[in-house]
Write a protein that binds this DNA or RNA. Structure first.
Lengths: 250, 250
DNA sequence: GGCTCATGTAAAGGTCGTTCACATGAGCTG
DNA sequence: CAGCTCATGTGAACGACCTTTACATGAGCC
């Protein structure tokens, strides 16, 4: 009860206080540095200032730690996608693309989480809680796709929202994992991963018949099914992509 | 030079004969079973019936073995993509889709190679030969995209072939790595990975303005001004998808 | 104060990756 | 065939890691 003990508790608390949290943080840092494969249980213990056996009081084994991190990652992922979707404001297509960018941003800014979630070799169904978290995150994309599908122009058959969601997911994951992270980012590209994904999604949506030319409706005409591409005269607002979803057409 | 020695040579040749090849094969099997992360150098040595130190006569370290496998994988990958592309026969769009399916088939049928190539955490530029092999494989996709881009319908701006190639690659990799391999394949889907990718690519191509409805024109009004590729009289390629790129429209 | 349980430690066994000194046999040279 | 040399494989050893086991310790509760 002495002051010192109180002090110790503040520093390390009960036998360190919250080793579990400390280990998660340490592991996160290590994974960010060296990848999920390179991360070692012993290192995390060392980093937390604790013996190599201590972590086993909090995690059955190394995989369970990894799985915990992946789960936490899916939760943050879900939060970011939810925020990006913003319930479809200001319009569905814009919000949808924002979700795509949020996906990439997460992959780029949280490499450790992304690695644990998708590249650590964890079996998808390792942990029911993990699986549930993963599904909750995916459901954001799915819900967005649902809203988008409901907007299908009259002329076109309405695409299944589930399929759209899976397509978008695969695009985002493909771009993230091939071009946007770690060593893979070194591949030389004609455009940034964000632009690449944005163009990909836009072209895809156009393929479904959605109007993707969302700029101040300078030249009236409500979008007919599959409107022609950007008119050559438009003023190219900053967010817009002149000349179509890709850069300057040849 | 006795009979026994000749026999031994037949079995193991000079000090085993071709340990290098045996190690590559062993590693391939192990990776297929347990993933690139789980594969161990010592195991490969054991499987080849050789001491744990022997592999070091043929590979600088474990990573070099992995890198060799990845390189060989890219070579086989290139061969399969080349065969699938078949120089764009019978028509560009059909051949293009066949390349997509070949991509998935490779990922499914050669999980060990795919794993070493894309999921082993090897730095892309680890080995110049590896990087070159990887580029050669990608160039097949790129060449196919080039041909496709050249067919851009007059009304549309011509999409950069490089971008198209990157898009297709990301779709194929995304689908393969999320849905088509190992544990990930357990995710329950409304359609097979092949169908998923086929639909995705078709929708994408339609978004670029390509005619993707290569069937006897059932319920017209589809392709805008576009020189149709295969003559519509040709006998319904087996890959045809009734009702649009996805299944029955709702 | 004493009990109990969660939490941490030390030690040990097993596996790996890797290195090093050494063995061995293939193929050449004379 | 003798002998040399070099590629190839072995055995032992080191350090790191994962994991288990027996033991220590201190928090919280009666």
């Amino acid at each position: 009860m002495s002051w010192r003990k109180e002090q110790r508790r503040a520093e390390r608390g009960y036998h360190h206080g919250n080793l579990k949290e400390a280990l998660l943080q340490a592991a996160l840092g290590l994974i960010a540095e060296k990848g999920a494969a390179g991360f070692t249980f012993a290192d995390a213990a060392r980093m937390a200032g604790v013996s190599a056996a201590a972590p086993y009081r909090h995690f059955r084994d190394r995989d369970e730690l990894l799985s915990s991190i992946a789960q936490r990652g899916f939760e943050q992922f879900e939060a970011r996608l939810t925020a990006a979707w913003d319930d479809g404001r200001p319009d569905t297509v814009t919000a949808f693309e924002r979700v795509g960018r949020a996906y990439l941003a997460f992959a780029r800014e949280e490499p450790a989480f992304y690695n644990a979630m998708f590249e650590s070799g964890l079996p998808v169904d390792a942990n029911p809680a993990l699986q549930a978290a993963s599904e909750r995150a995916f459901n954001i994309i799915r819900a967005a796709a649902e809203r988008l599908a409901a907007l299908a122009p009259p002329g076109m058959p309405r695409p299944p929202a589930m399929m759209m969601a899976l397509h978008i997911w695969s695009m985002a994951h493909g771009v993230a994992s091939l071009f946007s992270r770690g060593d893979a980012a070194r591949r030389k590209l004609p455009m940034s991963p964000d632009e690449l994904l944005e163009a990909e999604v836009l072209i895809y949506l156009r393929g479904l018949g959605f109007p993707t030319d969302r700029r101040p409706p300078a030249r009236g005409a409500e979008p007919p099914p599959v409107p022609p591409e950007a008119p050559s005269g438009s003023g190219v607002p900053p967010g817009g992509t002149p000349g179509g979803p890709w850069g300057k057409p040849k």
